[in-house]
Design a protein around this nucleic acid. Structure first.
Lengths: 181, 181
DNA sequence: GTTGTAGGCCAACGACTGTTGGCATAAAAT
DNA sequence: ATTTTATGCCAACAGTCGTTGGCCTACAAC
């Protein structure tokens, strides 16, 4: 046995995450993922059952939202923008979810769950009126997802050219108003 | 001849726009489009050459941006948000571009062209400093595309639940600041 | 040394895709 | 009435996809 079962499994998973992030669900073929991992396509099936389960394993994402309530209230907007930019640059899972959630209802539902379970409650802790919390969280999501879409997916040149600090400078006040204004 | 050539061509195009908008490029098959148009798949090829050319015909989009310079300066933000919401609800082309631009580099390039040719110049007319115009246009695009993504594509419940007026009320000031602040 | 087992590959199946060429037929032109 | 033309369908090709079952072989256990 040249390799342990777990080693190849994580090897396949790494290749799958790259392919799903770069190409989306349909264009990322099992054969291509297997080739990247230098392994036979049938091994992917052996270890993950089918393509859907492989995707589910690759798209396991946690936003790792910080505890904004512990920060000075007037800095939460900038903090949230900065956090999301970091997450997008360090975790392929963000790209995987957005690239395929746009054309796959099951993944879109997954994104709605992540939104409701992670961003929703966080905003509720910041927001005085609980009735307004969902709308405010939705607005924040729209701006944060929008900038990620333009910068990392569509690669609009001016948005790509902006520095991390410039984006925080421009979006910080927007998020601040959506969350606490 | 039961139908004119032009009639069936526009019939096919209408079915194609619906399918591309609902399913994206890969999942929208020629066979499904032909079935919707109640016609043989080979006719699609006869009239449009191949799938790429059919898509190009279906994804011909014009933002129809109004002349914001003619409006009171402090209302351009709200006017732009309202205009984009209208365009999204009346033109399937918006959905087609976003759904497939996310996983198709050629379509992403097309979106960058539309952005640079239509939104860029408009923002430049509003913006005193020409050096800042591209960044400001990019920021505006990020918020407008983000809310369309959340409302029409991902269907985040709170963003779907908001009325047109609520969205204008919340995003208007944001766009106002990005464009003129 | 023999046996068992786990990691890996090969070859193939059935389904679906875009695409093509040939054949039918209704209308128009002669 | 005959020929031409335009509109449409049928059947098939070649390629790709996810998926499966059988075979090989290096190692571990006995």
């Amino acid at each position: 046995m040249r390799r342990s079962s777990e080693d190849t499994k994580t090897l396949i998973l790494a290749a799958a995450r790259e392919r799903f992030a770069a190409d989306g669900y349909e264009r990322a073929t099992i054969r291509a993922i297997a080739a990247d991992a230098k392994i036979d396509p049938s091994m992917v099936m052996r270890y993950f059952g089918n393509k859907d389960k492989l995707f589910a394993a690759a798209a396991d994402v946690d936003l790792r939202l910080p505890d904004l309530a512990a920060l000075p209230r007037e800095t939460v907007g900038a903090a949230l923008v900065a956090h999301f930019l970091d997450r997008w640059e360090e975790d392929e899972g963000m790209m995987i979810l957005l690239r395929t959630g746009v054309t796959n209802e099951a993944v879109a539902e997954r994104m709605r769950m992540i939104f409701a379970a992670q961003l929703g409650p966080l905003v509720a802790t910041l927001c005085g009126d609980p009735a307004q919390a969902p709308s405010r969280a939705g607005l924040a999501a729209s701006q944060v997802l929008g900038v990620a879409l333009c910068r990392y997916v569509l690669r609009l040149p001016p948005v790509v050219a902006m520095s991390r600090e410039e984006i925080v400078h421009w979006l910080g006040p927007t998020l601040q108003r959506y969350l606490t204004g």
